[in-house]
Amino acid sequence: MEKLPKMDQQELIDYIGKRKVMLFFSADWCPDCRFIKPVMPEIEAQNPDFVFVYVDRDENIDLCGALDVYGIPSFVAFDGAQEIGRFVNKDRKTQGQVQEFIDELVA
């Protein structure tokens, strides 16, 4: 999984380019993030249409605000510059819930 460097919203759009990208917002101190993190490689492998990108919430706090991401772990999907879906809240997420969210995007 790629790790997003610190950037603002316009830099993010440039970074995404024409790719389908799934942003995974997380932080090392977050217990619910640590819960989902071990299964992220499997989720990533099951969804090759997306480039998965780890976004450190603390490093990119301004970007989180610009994208209205106030709870972690959270997921925001883009197809090029267009946001196509979000699974954003502060609740713990299971592998099944994340996969269901992604399945709805590609259906």
Results as ranks from 00 to 15, higher is better:
residue 15 Y to H: 14
residue 50 F to A: 08
residue 28 D to L: 11
residue 85 G to E: 03
residue 103 D to M: 06
residue 49 D to K: 14
residue 100 E to F: 04
residue 61 I to Y: 11
residue 62 D to I: 08
residue 63 L to V: 01
residue 67 L to T: 01
residue 53 V to P: 05
residue 40 M to G: 00
residue 93 K to V: 09
residue 22 M to C: 06
residue 51 V to S: 14
residue 45 A to E: 15
residue 46 Q to L: 12
residue 65 G to V: 01
residue 100 E to W: 00
residue 34 R to P: 00
residue 15 Y to Q: 03
residue 86 R to E: 10
residue 32 D to V: 03
residue 71 G to Y: 04
residue 24 F to L: 09
residue 97 Q to K: 13
residue 59 E to R: 11
residue 13 I to L: 15
residue 35 F to E: 13
residue 83 E to S: 13
residue 91 D to H: 10
residue 50 F to L: 06
residue 99 Q to M: 11
residue 45 A to H: 13
residue 44 E to W: 02
residue 14 D to P: 00
residue 106 V to D: 05
residue 83 E to T: 10
residue 31 P to K: 08
residue 81 A to R: 11
residue 84 I to Q: 02
residue 84 I to M: 03
residue 62 D to F: 09
residue 4 L to Y: 03
residue 87 F to A: 02
residue 71 G to K: 04
residue 107 A to D: 14
residue 84 I to H: 02
residue 49 D to Q: 15
residue 16 I to R: 06
residue 15 Y to W: 15
residue 106 V to S: 12
residue 104 E to Q: 15
residue 20 K to S: 15
residue 60 N to Y: 04
residue 94 T to D: 05
residue 37 K to I: 00
residue 39 V to Q: 12
residue 70 Y to S: 15
residue 14 D to S: 12
residue 29 W to T: 02
residue 61 I to C: 04
residue 80 G to V: 11
residue 5 P to L: 06
residue 15 Y to P: 00
residue 13 I to F: 12
residue 20 K to W: 09
residue 73 P to E: 07
residue 73 P to Y: 05
residue 98 V to Q: 08
residue 19 R to T: 10
residue 73 P to G: 10
residue 37 K to A: 13
residue 58 D to G: 08
residue 92 R to P: 02
residue 98 V to D: 05
residue 84 I to S: 01
residue 41 P to F: 10
residue 21 V to H: 04
residue 82 Q to H: 11
residue 30 C to N: 09
residue 98 V to S: 07
residue 27 A to Y: 09
residue 33 C to L: 05
residue 11 E to H: 09
residue 79 D to M: 02
residue 78 F to T: 00
residue 13 I to A: 10
residue 35 F to S: 09
residue 11 E to A: 15
residue 26 S to W: 14
residue 66 A to L: 02
residue 18 K to Y: 10
residue 38 P to A: 09
residue 76 V to W: 07
residue 96 G to H: 09
residue 29 W to V: 03
residue 69 V to M: 01
residue 14 D to L: 06
residue 94 T to R: 05
residue 26 S to H: 11
residue 27 A to S: 14
residue 55 V to K: 04
residue 64 C to Q: 03
residue 85 G to W: 05
residue 13 I to K: 15
residue 23 L to Q: 05
residue 92 R to Q: 13
residue 92 R to T: 10
residue 51 V to E: 15
residue 47 N to D: 12
residue 96 G to E: 14
residue 70 Y to H: 14
residue 48 P to E: 12
residue 43 I to N: 04
residue 95 Q to Y: 13
residue 35 F to C: 01
residue 92 R to W: 01
residue 46 Q to V: 01
residue 14 D to M: 00
residue 67 L to P: 02
residue 3 K to V: 11
residue 29 W to P: 06
residue 73 P to W: 07
residue 42 E to F: 07
residue 46 Q to H: 12
residue 97 Q to S: 13
residue 82 Q to V: 11
residue 50 F to S: 07
residue 51 V to D: 15
residue 55 V to H: 06
residue 60 N to R: 07
residue 83 E to L: 00
residue 47 N to L: 08
residue 90 K to N: 14
residue 8 D to L: 06
residue 48 P to V: 00
residue 87 F to G: 00
residue 48 P to L: 02
residue 44 E to D: 14
residue 62 D to R: 09
residue 5 P to W: 03
residue 98 V to K: 07
residue 63 L to S: 04
residue 77 A to Q: 04
residue 39 V to R: 07
residue 41 P to Q: 05
residue 74 S to Y: 04
residue 79 D to C: 01
residue 25 F to G: 03
residue 63 L to D: 03
residue 105 L to M: 08
residue 47 N to E: 10
residue 26 S to L: 07
